[in-house]
Design a protein around this nucleic acid. Structure first.
Length: 422
RNA sequence: GGAGAGGUGGCCGAGUGGUUGAAGGCGGCGGCCUCGAAAGCCGUUGUACUGCAUUGCGGUACCGUGGGUUCAAAUCCCACCCUCUCCGCCA
């Protein structure tokens, strides 16, 4: 949620920013709604002030055993008026809030202008893609012939976009989770969190998932509980409605959770394999910082995520998303894209964003350094998407005979196993 | 799932329907005292929105949440949420 002051004091700046973001929000409507609500509130408060004044007088009269029935009768009228105004104010406030909640964060100035991923700005590339002296297969063929990826089993048990991992494949997924958490907690100074995988609707709102992305999320029937689409949701809400002492910042969390996404609107996209699933494991990095720190912290968070790929020796590149391609809460996003030989392209494996104060305002997360509490900045990034990392390992470490070599860094987590063979 | 207790400011804890933003205490901040500190004493101490105003002075709201009664609600009524205790069930 943006600061409403932006709407009142700098509507043109806001309009330009939203245009840059390719957002089709009807600002004029919101501006008009806000103005009429505010004049209504002013009128109501005048009447309330009168009520309070008269109420004191009535109390005094009663104490002095004087008759106050005239004043009480007069106040009855004022009271009715206030109630009517309250009713209207409630409606207008709800309408205004509903619309304002749909306004996305605005991109930072440094974000390149452009519509979609073709306008990505390449920041850096790490390692050249490996050259094969045979035709590399994709993870589907490899995983099935190795008996570690069971797509039929996933479909049988849960339908489309679910995969069952077996044997060394399941072990590899678990090894990756532990490896990533160890790296971030032991080397990068993050505190490990294991949050609930079901959260309240209010938590989804606090993190910006609702109301806009309702159809993207899975909900428990008849209860106000949602399956987390990312650990970002519980992590954001961990400090909801808090005022954090400034010397505790930055707070850095690393959390493993599965992520549940309905992937509505992506029918026919990535249907083969396990690149796009309804459930995937992810280790998420999350930071609460001061406004001054947040841009540096975005860079270090991105580096922390990169360290996972470097540790696994997987070739990747880092891009900055263009203005028209932003997540709802993000002011700037770096994507990490890993090279997938089986797809012959780079694919997103992590998305690292500075949400500035957008989430913090919704979730009411502040810090105090002087007298006045100020909103924190929040940042999040995958460190990494575990399922896609598994895919990247299978495809990048495949051998001519169809086996897959285990990256050195993971062998301690695989009980010394150095290769998965049929 | 059954029975009971309770939710008040950063924390603890009072609060008869009428100058209650809310006693008291703790903590925090400022000061006195001291070579310095502790103790003691004095003072101060929320958030949001908003009007005038640019150190400041007002207004409104906020006592789990949402409704209701009333001229007036922390206080009365209703619903819901959460926490705790006991019983049952369960990994």
């Amino acid at each position: 949620m943006l600061d409403m002051k932006l709407l009142r004091e700098n509507p043109d700046v806001l309009r330009a920013a939203l245009a840059r973001r390719r957002s089709a929000i009807a600002l004029d409507e919101i501006i008009a709604l806000d103005a009429s609500r505010r004049s209504l509130v002013y009128e109501m408060e005048q009447l309330r002030a009168e009520q309070n004044r008269a109420s004191g007088e009535i109390a005094q009269a009663k104490r002095a055993k004087q008759d106050a029935s005239a004043a009480i009768a007069a106040m009855k009228e004022v009271s009715d008026k206030v109630k009517a105004l309250e009713e209207r104010e409630r409606e207008m406030d709800a309408a205004l809030r509903a619309q304002w909640m749909l306004v996305p964060n605005i991109p930072a100035d440094e974000v390149p202008d452009g519509d979609d991923e073709s306008a990505n700005r390449l920041e850096r590339t790490w390692r050249e893609p490996r050259s094969f002296d045979f035709e590399p297969k994709d993870h589907v063929d490899l995983g099935q012939s190795l008996g570690i990826l069971d797509f039929d089993g996933g479909a049988k048990v849960s339908g489309a976009r679910f995969t069952v991992l077996r044997g060394a494949g399941a072990r590899l997924e678990r090894a990756l989770i532990t490896y990533m958490l160890d790296l971030h907690t032991l080397k990068h100074g993050y505190t490990e969190i294991l949050p609930p995988f079901l959260v309240l609707g209010s938590s989804m709102e606090g993190a910006g998932q609702l109301p806009k992305f309702e159809q993207e999320a899975f909900k428990v029937r008849d209860r106000d509980l949602w399956l987390v689409p990312t650990a970002e949701v519980p992590l954001t809400n961990l400090h909801r409605d808090e005022i954090i002492e400034a010397d505790r910042l930055p707070i850095k969390y690393a959390a493993y959770t599965p992520s549940f996404r309905s992937e509505a609107g992506s029918y026919g996209k990535d249907t083969r394999g396990m690149l796009r699933q309804h459930q995937f494991d992810k280790v998420e990095l999350y930071k609460f910082t001061t406004p001054e720190q947040s841009w540096d912290e975005l860079e270090s968070l991105t580096r922390d995520a990169e360290a996972v790929l470097q540790g696994l020796e997987l070739p990747y590149r880092v891009v900055t998303l263009p203005s028209g391609d932003y997540g709802f809460c993000a002011a700037m996003t770096h994507d990490l894209e890993v090279w997938l030989p089986g797809q012959n392209c780079y694919r997103e494996i992590s998305s690292c964003s500075n949400c500035t104060d957008f989430q913090a305002r919704r979730a009411n997360i502040r810090f105090r350094r002087d007298k006045k509490p100020e909103l924190v900045h929040t940042l999040n990034g995958s460190g990494l998407a575990v399922g896609r990392t598994l895919v990247a390992i299978i495809e990048n470490y495949q051998q001519k005979d169809g086996s897959v070599v285990i990256p050195n860094a993971l062998r301690p987590y695989m009980n010394g196993l150095d290769r998965i063979e049929p």
